[in-house]
Write a protein that binds this DNA or RNA. Structure first.
Lengths: 252, 252
DNA sequence: GATTTCAGCATCTCTAGACAAGCTGAAATC
DNA sequence: GATTTCAGCTTGTCTAGAGATGCTGAAATC
């Protein structure tokens, strides 16, 4: 009873992997025709539906495309395959997430609230928030853990005047998350966001993400404005590049 | 022989649409259990594989998720369904694209080079590019057309000193596009990018995108830096919100 | 009461067929 | 030579089964 990783791998999966390997290796190049259903039936000795299922995997992942009556072809411009997240949909920052990837199916994302405190913030961040000297902001630090691996550290700054007495910084903010809470208070934020390719700086954050300093990461700086132009949040994030989050939605 | 839009719609598609409608209408809410294979077999009088195929559609689109041995459930946090592009992969900006969406399969994206000229640019853009007064930039205007509908206008500014005598601004820039050409010249750009939700301003651009002024659009401002900090490109884009491009890859 | 066992139900994989529908290129026709 | 027809290929849809595998909760056991 060895716990071999693929004790009984489904046939269709093995066939799909063979095809993918042949594509990666250059045996089949973009535009080339792949073995069709009939070919796979003969080569692997499987039924039509099993061969179809294998080819379906490649189509779902955007690697191949079938032309009815003609054959199955390697896509000319196919997505760069990532080990990371393909799609993340969360209207509910703070109370749990679900992550989905074409490559490997659903995944678990949890959010740990590390700290939350009200304090004076560095000058440059105060400037972004439009705070005068002496005014303080609510700083919330959170860590996002994907399938057991920490992938994102987030530090969120909200003007204290905006959040005192509200539940905005509760660990579980409820449906809609921070932005929904802000909306309840009359602020419907629009955000500006910068994605910056960088390398992991040494220090605390590297440890909490379990990343060696120098590892490629993304820095994401998000500034959220209310309709009247007031800055209601500044958020600095460090994100493991290999788990780059491609889509997030803050809309309610 | 009426050309009814769904003369003979496949059964699995009809079932999938029924389920989606019931989810949209709130009959099944996030976390709820959907009718399983056996239920659909009875309700619709179809074979197991057909029922599976219907449920597979919802899973591929990230709307539902199956738990083996338990059932099929509406995902707690499911992607906001868009009419537009789910994924765009192009390592080949300028020489043709192919676009793929989970919702509706492959789509055609073409890129028209509208104009390209060397000229002095507005002061604020010259500032971004680090140009002194009198220096000029190469301005390339392109339009991206998705399935016949214009969805994106792009205006790209490159320091003239960088591009004169190169093929960077050829309509067909070849494999890898602009960024690959820049890399050949010793610049490996890193880009900052802002996504700004806005509304279509009146004028030329509204016409070329065939969008009524006031329509929700995204403004994307991208600034590309070489490793030495030099700005090698500034790109201003106006993007039809309904065709929001979620992923683009400039990496080689 | 706490633990273990297990029947029942669900999805997952797979088979061996069948017919429909779209495409291609060669043969037949004009 | 130009056009049309059509056989033969392809993928698309669908059936009616089967066993494997994973989960759950209730019953049996400790």
């Amino acid at each position: 009873m060895t716990s071999s990783p693929r004790a009984t791998q489904p046939k269709y999966q093995r066939i799909a992997e063979d095809l993918k390997r042949d594509i990666d290796s250059g045996r089949y190049r973009p535009g080339d025709r792949l073995p069709g259903e009939n070919d796979l039936m003969v080569t692997y000795g499987v039924a039509r539906m099993t061969a179809r299922q294998a080819l379906g995997v490649l189509q779902t992942e955007g690697i191949a495309e079938a032309r009815k009556g003609v054959g199955v072809f390697v896509r000319e411009f196919r997505p760069i395959r990532r080990r990371g997240i393909q799609r993340l949909s969360g209207r509910n920052w703070g109370s749990g997430f679900s992550v989905w990837s074409t490559d490997i199916g659903p995944r678990d994302l949890t959010v740990d609230q590390l700290t939350v405190a009200e304090r004076e913030v560095p000058e440059e961040i105060a400037a972004v928030l439009g705070l005068k000297t002496g005014e303080s902001a609510c700083v919330r630090s959170r860590r996002f853990v994907l399938d057991g691996k920490p992938v994102l550290l987030s530090e969120s700054y909200l003007p204290a005047a905006l959040v005192t007495g509200t539940r905005i910084t509760d660990p579980d903010t409820g449906p809609g998350g921070t932005y929904a809470r802000l909306a309840e208070l009359g602020h419907k934020p629009v955000h500006f966001q910068e994605h910056i390719r960088s390398r992991m700086p040494a220090g605390d954050e590297a440890e909490r993400l379990a990343l060696a300093p120098g590892t490629p990461v993304f820095l994401v700086h998000r500034t959220a404005f209310a309709e009247d132009g007031q800055v209601v949040e500044f958020n600095a994030m460090v994100l493991d590049s290999s788990a780059y989050i491609l889509e997030y939605d803050f809309d309610a």
